[in-house]
């Protein structure tokens, strides 16, 4: 069943704030093998010009992927998650995420389309601090593979 094209242009209310913890950044950095001290040591991070330990560039997906579940799990969209693969990912940054940030996500649907028997949806998540400072925007294109005939 194709995805509901009326989702294009929809937005959802901002999420509750996600408090970025120092240990979460360290855990993520260790998991991807990023050993530079600014990901682990607050003093080294401050010397490098950050307010606290800084997150690697793909860290925001921890927050944006769970936030965008409110779209992709909406039964009216009609997405069968067992057939979904991640197609594209993009981040545009105002500044890197640092420990201590309280981040609010707002989700949008930029595109829904069908091509070659597959369905595509592009979500956009705008990430701001609780006080409204823009931090980054993340786009994810998900592909629902066509059912085997």
């Amino acid at each position: 069943m194709p995805l509901d094209p009326s989702f294009v242009g929809r937005s959802w209310p901002p999420s509750d704030p996600y408090l970025v913890g120092r240990e979460k950044i360290r855990e993520f950095a260790r998991a991807i093998g990023a050993e530079d001290p600014e990901y682990h040591d607050p003093e080294a991070a401050r010397r490098a010009g950050y307010a606290d330990v800084v997150a690697p560039p793909t860290f925001p997906v921890v927050i944006t992927m769970s936030s965008s579940r409110q779209i992709i799990r909406d039964p009216e969209l009609g997405l069968d998650y067992s057939r979904v693969v991640h197609g594209d990912q993009k981040f545009a940054y105002e500044r890197p995420v640092v420990a201590g940030d309280a981040l609010v996500c707002q989700n949008f649907v930029d595109e829904v389309m069908q091509r070659g028997g597959h369905d595509f949806i592009t979500t956009r998540t705008e990430v701001r601090t609780e006080s409204g400072e823009r931090v980054l925007t993340a786009w994810a294109k998900l592909v629902q593979r066509g059912e085997d005939k």
Binding site: A34, G49, P56, P57, Y93
Partner: peptide
């Protein structure tokens, strides 16, 4: 990318296709 660019704060945009 960050090793080459000098740090997380050097990255303005980053996108890929899987």
């Amino acid at each position: 990318l960050t090793a080459w660019a000098g740090g997380s704060d050097a990255v303005v945009e980053f996108s890929v296709r899987f």
